[in-house]
Amino acid sequence: MTFNDHYETFDGLRVVEFPLEGPLPEVTGPVAWRVAHWDVGDEAEGRVSAEFTAVLDRFVDLAGAETTHLVIGAWGYAAVNVAPLEHFAALAPRLPRLRALFFGDVTFDECEISWMKVGDVSRLLAAYPALEVLRVRGGEEFGFSPVRHERLRDLAVESGGLPKVFLDAVLASELPALTGLELWLGVEDYGGDITPADLASILAGSAFPGLRRLGLRNAEHANAIAAAVAGAPVVQQLAELALSMGTFDDEGVGALLAGQPLTHLDALDLHFHFMTGEGSASIVAALPGVRVDVSDPQLTGGPHAGRRYTKVSE
């Protein structure tokens, strides 16, 4: 399972595609611009796509001074072309109002997530000290280094298999303004080797004391994650909790309901799951004041019997 569509909204704003030619389209109110240029060229192995950077530079010429929200899509063919992190970092003086960035809005037909050559995305935080929201997607050559950033409030990392070394670098970072953290843990076959024990400082509330929204999503061992969350001190400070897109089933329901109360939550996201109808109904009934999302149940009968898979892997 993987991505079929580009994001239509980002950080609450409508995403508008930047045209490859011609002027900016007319828009009403603030929007998130999406810049992309997809192409395939095997001769460009390991190189930044000059075609993409030309499009990006043209966008910055036309709209950089006013842009607050930006989505970076395909930078050529992401399995061949490396992400233009250094080029984008160098554009920071020409994007003075940028506050929210999504780097990697690439669908499966443009490049499978596990093939995406991204690099060390903490470089983006170092280059943009005023950034408040960072969402990144990647698989191959996907890294992070410890960083201090005063303004970042939301960090989301989308992966089909997030390695522990990436998590460790995030945990070693100083992010005093962070209130939202979303990690797509993924599967072992694509590098996802994070265990509940590795999340201990997040679950204890010590890693990022200001957290109000936590997502531990797309997990191959979602029930084990749920069991760890059930008794985690951080839960009491959360308004939103997401354990969606993974292998969560009735065992996970039992773990959550046997743990601490969750009635203080505003929202519990469990969509894309393997719960039975009874399991779904029981957790919804147990949390009458909480918005519980149990949509998108996965087939468990017939040829799918016994199978468990995450929403995003390859």
Rank of each mutant, 00 (worst) to 15 (best):
N4Y: 11
N4S: 11
D5N: 15
G12V: 03
L13H: 15
L13P: 04
L20A: 12
G22I: 10
G22H: 10
E26I: 03
T28W: 00
A32K: 02
V35R: 01
V40H: 04
G41L: 10
D42F: 15
G46I: 08
R47Y: 10
S49G: 06
E51R: 15
E51V: 15
A54W: 06
L56R: 09
R58F: 04
R58L: 05
F59S: 03
A63D: 07
A63M: 09
A63H: 07
A65N: 10
A65R: 15
T67N: 02
T67M: 03
W75F: 11
Y77C: 09
A78R: 05
A79W: 10
A79T: 11
N81E: 02
A89E: 07
A90S: 14
P93D: 09
P93M: 03
L95M: 09
P96V: 04
A100S: 14
F103Y: 14
V106C: 02
I113Q: 09
W115I: 10
R123P: 03
L124Q: 05
L125F: 06
A127C: 10
Y128P: 00
Y128V: 02
Y128E: 02
P129V: 05
L131N: 00
E132V: 08
V136Y: 01
R137L: 13
G139R: 09
E141P: 00
G143P: 00
F144V: 06
S145H: 09
R151F: 00
V157G: 01
G161M: 05
L162F: 06
P163G: 04
V165W: 07
D168F: 07
A169M: 11
L171T: 11
A172E: 14
E174K: 12
L175K: 00
L181F: 05
L181V: 08
E182N: 12
E182W: 15
L183V: 10
L185Y: 05
V187R: 10
E188V: 14
Y190D: 10
D193N: 14
D193T: 08
L199N: 07
A200M: 08
I202A: 02
F208I: 12
P209E: 08
R213G: 00
R213K: 13
L216V: 12
N223W: 13
N223G: 10
I225C: 06
A230Y: 12
G231M: 06
A232I: 12
P233Q: 12
V235M: 01
Q236W: 12
L241A: 01
F248R: 06
E251R: 15
G252F: 09
A255I: 10
P261N: 07
L268K: 00
H273N: 14
H273I: 03
T276R: 02
S280C: 08
S280V: 04
A281K: 10
A281F: 05
A281G: 04
S282K: 13
R291K: 13
T300W: 02
G301M: 06
H304R: 15
A305I: 03
R307H: 13
R308T: 12
Y309Q: 10
